[in-house]
Design a protein around this nucleic acid. Structure first.
Length: 323
DNA sequence: AAACAAGACAACCGCGTACGA
DNA sequence: CTCGTACGCGGTTGTCTTGTT
C-alpha cells in the first residue's frame, strides 16, 4: 500500500542511545504520549527506527523502572514464574512491574540460569537453600509460600479492580500494561519519565561517565563528546556542562519544567515517581502495591504443583533454557 | 601494567499477531 | 475475507566493564 517499511536501513542510527536522543524522545513522549511509534522518528528527527524508539522507552526511559540488583523476592518470583510460564518474559515482567522483560531476561540468562544449573548439579546437598546462596537471605519454602499466600488476597482484589470496566485500578495506574492491555495514563507518567532521564543525566554529570555507567551504559561515551558540545542547540554553550553539571541541570529543569535534580533522588535503585512508589518494596509483600499474582499463584497452589516436594527441586528447568 | 577472559546489559533482529483498510 | 502495517515479544548479538593472570 505504498507505506514505507518500519526501518528503512538507510540513515538509521544504531547502537547506544545518547543523552541528547533520550531527551528528545522523552520530551516527545511527554508531549504526545507513547504509541504511534512509527511517527516518532519522523516527528522528532531522531535517526532511529520506530522499534528502537519503542524499545528505548519501554526498557529504559519509561517511568517506574527499577534498576539495579534484583531482590531475593524478585529472584524467587522469576524462578517461580519461569518454571510456570517458560521464557515468556513479558508475562513474567507483568508480575514484576518495576522490571522490564529485557531486564528479567538478561537476569535470567546471566544469573539465574547459572545458579539453577549449579543447584541441579549439586542436587541433594544444598538444593533447598541453593538459590539463596552467596550470602543472601535464605527464605525457606514454607516462608516463601506463606508470603505468596498472603499476597493472593491483595492480588485478587487488585485484579478484580483492574478488570472492572470504567473503574481503573489505582494499583495499576501508570504501570506497564502487560497484563492489562491499556496505554498508561499520560500526564503524570511523562513527568516522571523526564525525572528518570533528568536524574540519570544529573548523576552522570556529577559522578562522571564512569560511575553513572552503572545506571546507564547508554551514556557510555557520548558524554565525553557532549560535555563541551551544544547539547540543546537553542541556548547551549560549552560551559553549560560544567563540572558540576549545574548549567546543564538548569537547562533540563527549564526544559522539563520541574525540579528534578534533588540529590536525594539520585539513587536509581529507588522508584522514581509517586506513581511508582506503590511498588517500591518487594520485600514488603503486603504493602498493598503488589501487582496481581493471584491467578498464577492460585493456579499454582490449587493445582498442588508443589505437592509436598521441595520447592526448589520442583522448579524444573528446560534443558533448552539452561543450555 | 598489559593482555585476556568472563560477566553484564543494552540494543538489534526476525517472527508472530492484532488491527485496520 | 484478504492484505499490509505496526507493534510486541523472545532470541541473539555486540560492546563495555570487571576480574584474573
Amino acid at each position: 500500500m505504498g507505506r514505507p517499511p518500519c526501518c528503512d536501513k538507510i540513515g538509521v542510527k544504531k547502537g547506544p542511545w545518547t543523552p541528547e536522543e533520550d531527551i528528545i524522545l522523552v520530551s516527545y513522549i511527554q508531549e504526545h504520549g507513547p504509541g504511534n511509534w512509527r511517527a516518532v522518528p519522523t516527528n522528532t528527527g531522531l535517526l532511529r527506527c520506530s522499534k528502537s524508539c519503542r524499545l528505548r522507552w519501554t526498557n529504559y526511559l519509561r517511568p517506574g523502572i527499577k534498576r539495579g540488583n534484583f531482590t531475593d523476592h524478585e529472584e524467587k518470583m522469576i524462578i517461580h514464574l519461569q518454571a510456570l510460564l517458560g521464557n515468556r518474559w513479558a508475562a513474567i515482567a507483568s508480575y514484576l512491574p518495576q522490571r522490564t522483560d529485557n531486564d528479567i531476561k538478561n537476569f535470567w540468562n546471566t544469573h539465574l540460569k547459572k545458579k539453577l544449573r549449579k543447584i541441579q548439579a549439586g542436587q541433594g546437598d544444598q538444593s533447598r537453600d541453593g538459590l539463596s546462596s552467596a550470602g543472601s537471605q535464605q527464605i525457606s519454602r514454607g516462608q516463601w509460600e506463606r508470603r505468596l499466600q498472603t499476597d493472593i488476597n491483595m492480588a485478587r482484589q487488585a485484579l478484580c479492580e483492574a478488570l472492572s470496566p470504567g473503574k481503573p485500578s489505582s494499583l495499576l495506574t501508570g504501570l506497564k500494561p502487560a497484563c492489562v492491555n491499556e496505554k498508561p495514563a499520560p500526564a503524570p507518567i511523562y513527568a516522571s519519565s523526564t525525572e528518570n532521564i533528568a536524574r540519570l543525566l544529573k548523576g552522570w554529570m556529577i559522578n562522571g561517565p564512569k560511575q553513572s555507567l552503572k545506571n546507564s551504559t547508554t551514556t557510555q561515551n557520548s558524554f565525553i563528546n557532549m560535555a563541551g558540545a551544544d547539547l540543546l542547540s537553542s541556548e547551549g554553550t560549552p560551559d553549560k556542562a560544567d563540572k558540576n553539571g549545574t548549567g546543564l541541570s538548569q537547562t533540563f529543569e527549564s526544559l522539563f519544567g520541574f525540579d528534578s535534580f534533588d540529590s536525594s533522588n539520585s539513587d536509581f535503585s529507588q522508584p522514581m515517581s509517586p506513581d511508582t512508589g506503590l511498588f517500591q518494596d518487594e520485600s514488603k509483600p503486603n504493602s498493598g502495591g503488589q501487582v496481581p499474582l493471584s491467578l498464577i499463584e492460585r493456579w499454582l497452589f490449587d493445582e498442588g504443583a508443589m505437592q509436598g516436594k521441595d520447592y526448589l527441586n520442583e522448579v524444573t528447568i528446560d534443558e533448552d533454557n539452561l543450555f
